[in-house]
Amino acid sequence: MSDQPTLIDWTKVQDLCEDVGRDGFDEVVELFLEEVETALQTIGMAEDLEAALHFVKGCALNIGFDHFTDLAAQGERLAARGLPDQVDLVALDHAYRITRDLFLSEVRDRIAA
């Protein structure tokens, strides 16, 4: 058994693609990447860190970015408890970038018809 977190729930990715169709899936992915990258660029300056983390968590959950979702949820809980200084935004950003790169390198093969 591995201690490595599951980065991507490929079943969820496949289900999303089937639900919205291939063209819709490409649009969802493009929108997801744009919104999350914009959010991550400004998250450290967010007036409401809990809400900002909730937003990226929801986006990531919908597209199957499991590890990133978990880190955003942990951060959201810390912010909700009044501990925003304990949220590791660098780790969150790093997890996103690693997951994004893996996703983009494998998605075409994984959802090919």
Rank of each mutant, 00 (worst) to 15 (best):
A39C: 08
D48L: 09
A91T: 00
A79M: 09
L61I: 09
D88S: 04
D93Q: 14
L83Y: 03
R22F: 10
E37T: 06
E37W: 06
Q74H: 13
H94D: 15
K57V: 05
R81A: 15
H54C: 04
H94Y: 11
E50A: 15
R81F: 10
L83I: 01
R97T: 14
G82S: 05
E76C: 08
M45D: 15
D93S: 15
L71N: 00
A95V: 01
Q41L: 12
R100M: 02
E35I: 04
L53I: 00
L31G: 04
T69F: 07
V87K: 01
H67G: 02
L102S: 11
Q74S: 14
H67C: 02
L89E: 06
E50L: 04
A51S: 14
F55W: 13
F25M: 03
E76H: 04
H67N: 07
Q74C: 11
I43N: 13
L31Q: 00
Q41N: 14
A52D: 05
L102H: 10
D48Y: 08
V29I: 15
G24V: 06
G64C: 03
D70T: 11
G21Y: 08
E30S: 14
D48Q: 12
L83E: 12
L49K: 03
R77A: 13
C59T: 06
I43D: 15
C59G: 14
D66L: 10
E76D: 07
H67F: 08
T42K: 07
T69W: 03
A52S: 12
D93G: 15
A52W: 05
I43P: 14
A80M: 08
A79R: 08
N62R: 08
Q86K: 11
F68Q: 02
Q41I: 00
A79N: 11
M45P: 03
H67R: 02
Q74P: 09
L92G: 03
T99H: 08
D101A: 15
V87I: 07
E50T: 12
L92S: 02
L49V: 01
R97A: 14
E27Q: 11
H54W: 03
E37A: 05
R100T: 02
A72N: 04
Q74W: 09
H94A: 14
G44P: 07
I63M: 03
H54T: 05
L49Q: 06
R81W: 09
N62A: 13
D88Q: 02
V28Y: 07
D70C: 07
V29H: 10
N62M: 10
A39S: 14
A73Q: 14
A73C: 12
D66P: 02
A60K: 07
F25W: 03
D101K: 15
D66N: 12
F65V: 05
H94T: 14
T69I: 01
D85I: 00
A52Q: 00
V87W: 04
G82E: 05
T99S: 13
R81H: 10
A60W: 05
G64M: 01
A51V: 10
G58M: 01
D101H: 15
I63H: 00
V56C: 00
N62C: 08
A52T: 02
C59Q: 13
Y96V: 07
R100Y: 02
E37L: 03
L89K: 07
A51W: 09
F25A: 01
G58C: 00
L78N: 06
